[in-house]
Write a protein that binds this DNA or RNA. Sequence first.
DNA 1: CGCTGGTTTGAAGGTCGTCAAGAAGGGTGG
DNA 2: CCACCCTTCTTGACGACCTTCAAACCAGCG
Lengths: 242, 242
Amino acid sequence: MSPVNSPLAKKLNSFAPLSPDELTCLADLQARRRTVAAMTEIVHEGQTDHRAWILQEGWANCYKLVPNGGRQIIGFPLPGDFMGLRSILLRTSDHSFASLTDAVVTEVPKHRIDEIFQAFPRLATSILWAMSRDEAMVVEHLVSLGRRTAIEGLAHLFLELGQRLSLVDLVSGSGFACPLNQYVLADALGLSAVHVNRVLRQLRERGLVSVKAHQVIIHDLDGLRELAGYDSTYLNGDRPAR
Amino acid sequence: MSPVNSPLAKKLNSFAPLSPDELTCLADLQARRRTVAAMTEIVHEGQTDHRAWILQEGWANCYKLVPNGGRQIIGFPLPGDFMGLRSILLRTSDHSFASLTDAVVTEVPKHRIDEIFQAFPRLATSILWAMSRDEAMVVEHLVSLGRRTAIEGLAHLFLELGQRLSLVDLVSGSGFACPLNQYVLADALGLSAVHVNRVLRQLRERGLVSVKAHQVIIHDLDGLRELAGYDSTYLNGDRPAR
DNA sequence: CGCTGGTTTGAAGGTCGTCAAGAAGGGTGG
DNA sequence: CCACCCTTCTTGACGACCTTCAAACCAGCG
C-alpha cells in the first residue's frame, strides 16, 4: 500500500479534499511503519509521553478496567484512526489502547503535529475534525449503553463499524471482516458474552445481520437502521450521508 | 461576585496558577453576563454558530434524545464550565445544552478564543486542559453505564459532582446544593426514576449519602469511594488528589 | 488426536423496568 | 389560613431483560 493512499488520507479526504502538498505531508508523517502483535498495549492509561499513533492496518480497542475485574471498551480504532492524539494536544491519556489483531502503526511525535498546524492549517482542521468525530462516537456509545437495549446497541455498533470501514475501503458488498469475538463485543456493550450470543442469534433469525468466520454480513440495512434508530450524521461532519 | 473571582478562574487556577494578566483577560472574557430561565435550551444539537458559552451560576445538562422517546444525559455543566466549546474549536455540537435551573451565562465568540490562543498561550493550555477533563468525564460516565451497577453509578456521580463543585467553592462541609430530581438522575444513569428512588434509599440506609430538599449530604466519604471504585485523578490533571 | 479458544444452549436467579397508586411537599388563589 | 393544585417522591406487585453458572459443542492447530 502506498502511503499516499493511506487509510488516514482516505478518511480525511472524505471530510475535505486534500491537495497534493497535503497528501505528501501525510505520506511523510506515516513513512515509518511498525508492526505490532495482537493483544499488545500501545498506550497505557495515565501515560504522558508526547506522542500519538496512527493505526495503519488491523484493529485495536481502547478501554478502562474497573476495580471489580470488569472491563469497559470505549471504542475501536480502525485503520486510519489516531490513537492517543489527545495525550499529545491536551494532557495525558485517561484510558489504554491495545491492538486486537496483528497491526501496523506509525508513531507521531508531538513536533510533527506542531509542524502540521503551522504549515498546513487546512490539514490541521481536518485532523481536528477527526478528533471531534471520535468524541461524537464516544457520546453515541454512551447513548447505546444508557438508552438502547442490547439488540439495538449491537445493531448500532455494526452499522457504525460498517460506515467507518467503508470510508477506508474495507467493506466489500454488504459485509466486512471483523475480528471481534463475543467477549469483546460484550465488554464494549456492557453485556455478558452469553447474552451477546443470544442477541446475535436474534439478529440472525430476524434476517438483519449474521456473523460467521470473522465476517459480518448485513442482510437488511434498512431494517437494521430502523431497529437501532441509527442516524449517520455524527460520522459525516454533518453533511448528508452518502 | 467579581469576575476576577469567577468560577472559571477558580477552576483553571487549580490546574495552573494564573498571572494577573491572565486573570484580567478571563475577567474581560466574562464581562457581559446574561441570565437564562430554568429549562431553556442554550445550544441545539447540530448547531454550527461559532460561539461557546461559559456557565457562571446555576446548573445545566447536555443530552441526546433517542427516537423512542428516551433521553440520555451526557453530562452536567456546572459554574465555571464551558458549554459548546467544541463547536467553536472543532465543528458542530453533537448534542444539546439546556439550563436546569435559572442560570447566568456569558457568550464567547470565536474570535475571543482565537485572541487568547494568540496572546496567552499558557491560558490556552489551561482551557485545553478543561476540555480534556470534560472528555474524561464522558468516558468515566460511559464506564458507569456499562460496567457499574445502579448504586455504584449513583455513588460515582455524587462523588464527581462533589469534587467538581468543591473546585468552585460550592461545597459547604460534607454537603452541596443539587437541583437534580430523580427523573434527571435516571436520564443520566440510564435507569428509570422508580429505580433511582430505590437506590437512593439504599444509599441512605447504608449511611453513605442522603438527599433531601435539594441538598446532597455525604455521610461516609470513604465508604462511598469504596462502593463506587472512585479514582479522582481524572479530574485533577493527574496530580495527586487534594 | 487432544488442546485451546470461541460459540452455543439450558436453567435459575437478580437487577431493573413498567404499571399503578398513594403520600408528601410547595405554590397559588380564594 | 385553608383548599387545591402540581410536581416530586415513595412503595408494591409483576414481569422483562440480562447475568451467572454449568456444560456441551465446534473448529483450528500443534
